[in-house]
Simulated assay, not measured.
Amino acid sequence: MDRRDATAALFGLGALSAFARPASAQAQAGRVPPLGGAITDVAGVKIGHFTDTRRPTGCTVLLAEEGATAGVDVRGAAPGTRETDLLNPTNLVDRVHAVMLSGGSAFGLEAATGVVRWLEEKGIGFPAGPARVPIVPAAILFDLGMGDHRIRPDAEAGYRACAAATAEAPAEGSVGAGTGATVGKAYGLARAMKGGIGTASVKVGKVTVGALVAVNAVGDVIDPRSGEVIAGTRTEDGRRRLGLTQAILRGELPPALQAGMATTIGIVATDAQLTKAQATKIAQQSHDGLARTIDPIHTMWDGDTMFCVATGKSGVTGNMMALGAIAAQVTAAAVIRAVLAARMVSGAGVPAVPSAAEF
């Protein structure tokens, strides 16, 4: 059994012969991450990042220019979202043209406006009278504590992310929506570690499932096999990983946090054919991948949101049992890849938050 097969066994997926490509060189620079591939292995999907050079923030867009069936599930108590009500299976529009993930807290929702503008210029959108209206759901994470909070992704950032979008495997770690992401923030940024954005995919038979997750949690990122903290809350002297849940069980209660100071957001994509109701169910099940790798998850201070998009390009009707199980696995893998690929970022007023690779 080679190294990739061994890490796949951790996630119960067997041999990795079906994975499209190995882990990126950027991710391999740290610990060996689980699984290979990228969400762009799903036919009909492109990913583009915009990373702001003025402070650690940015946004990431998934483009589905031919349209994709979509669903969403919000579990965190402090979400920041756009167009999620439209994805309810009882509502009219059944296809989206992009999904935006952004830093900048609620201000970052403006990035989706730039995506709408880019798509409109391409003539892409839902027919509505004389116009075509691009459908672009979005979710944001809180990274305003990393440098000058007045700098955040805007419509131009979203437009530039679209212009950079490609079907090649996207960069991971401290880029795009993961640029200013941090984890383990229950005792403040001074004891946190770096989060980031990660991706993974698997192909089973004729169907491919991929995930892209921007990890910015209050909780720790853990190895689902051993429970070891990979990146998260550090001890008071900053030298060791604390283990947040164990600390809470010992009575070391964290201070009261302001709601919305964190949030993990992501997308599961597949080339299977799904209805809106089925896509919504897969989005729900993808949260199991977050629960396996982030502890605690879905807190009052997180706005955890997962989307599912289905391009239907494989021509295969989705097997819901298989897709739900795989969605959770690739989501978990993307979370771990995100923190293993992350690197410390710097700049004026930016806290020195170490990454797993540097700690």
Rank of each mutant, 00 (worst) to 15 (best):
A20Q: 11
A25I: 11
A25K: 11
V32T: 15
A38Q: 00
T51G: 11
V61Q: 04
E66W: 01
G67W: 06
A70H: 00
D73E: 10
A78W: 00
T81M: 01
E83C: 01
D85W: 10
S105H: 06
S105Y: 04
S105N: 11
A106E: 08
L109E: 04
V115D: 01
V115C: 07
I124T: 10
R132Q: 10
R132I: 02
A138K: 02
L141D: 05
M146V: 07
R152Y: 15
A155F: 03
G158Y: 04
A163E: 15
A164D: 04
A165F: 06
A165T: 01
E168T: 11
A177N: 07
G188Q: 12
A190G: 14
M193W: 02
K194A: 04
A214F: 05
E228M: 14
A231K: 07
T233M: 05
G238W: 09
G243H: 00
G243A: 01
A247T: 10
P255F: 11
M261A: 13
T263N: 06
I265H: 01
V268W: 02
V268Y: 03
A269P: 02
Q273S: 12
K276W: 01
A277C: 03
Q278T: 04
K281I: 12
K281N: 13
I282K: 07
G289L: 10
A291R: 12
D295C: 12
D302Q: 09
D304H: 01
T311K: 04
L323K: 14
A325G: 13
A332E: 14
A348P: 10
A352Y: 07
